[in-house]
Amino acid sequence: MKIIVSVKRVIDYNVKVRVKTDNSDVDLTNVKMSLNPFCEIAVEEAIRLKEAGVASEIVVVSIGPNAVQEQLRTAMALGADRAIHIETEMQPEPLNVAKLLTKIVEAEEPGLVILGKQSIDSDNNQVGQMLAALTGWPQGTFASEVKIEDGKALVTREVDGGLRTLSLTLPAVVTTDLRLNEPRYAKLPDIMKAKRKPMEVKTPADLNVHLKKHISQLKVETPPQRQVGIKVDSVDALIDKLKNEAKIILRKLG
């Protein structure tokens, strides 16, 4: 079985973002960029499936400017076999990403596509579901465990209040949650080998996808700062503030 993993280059998880003074966007000049943490988990899961003999080949795909090749090399150093870079000037919107991936999936015919559940920059949490909808494949989102058995994917998902397991026919789309695995480190010899692994470059035009504008970002602001706290003088006053000012429901739910 072939697995496609789609990965995104994003601002490093540790970087504290600053909003530009003109409020047009956040300031990304010379900040550290890395693999999106959820995508790192997706790559790791694919490698584990390959090590377990379930998968035979791992293809990583990333969309964006030339710099995303750095993250594709990282994914190949970790264990992906080859890479496809879909070159665009900017990171496209989720629906456009899903359409591009659909074309790749149609051409590559994988048994499984694994993606991160969301990217930590735009926090959209959409691409995997959209890809599943466009391909008509079943989806197992926010996965904390993935097993392939008898031609089916058994996916345990993190849902509100617990875990839920689904059985999906293959091919299927899986998106990863944080607890699925702990990604490995890239080892030096593998980093060196990854430089020689194949990287194919395509454009949206090659794939016959028109990038349509659905949503525009008008403005970006710093969130309101936490108000300075107050002291209350009794338990009653505390409960009153929590209920009426902070609007906290002070009781057990369900």
């Binding site: 601002i11 504290k16 973002v17 909003v19 956040v26 930590i120 920059d121 735009s122 926090d123 504008k213 659905h214 949503i215 525009s216 970002q217 008008l218 403005k219 970006v220 602001e221 710093t222 969130p223």
Partner: peptide, 14 residues
Amino acid sequence: PIYAGNAIATVHSH
């Protein structure tokens, strides 16, 4: 919210 709530975007749907 974007960037884990560290920025708030105003977005317009077409």
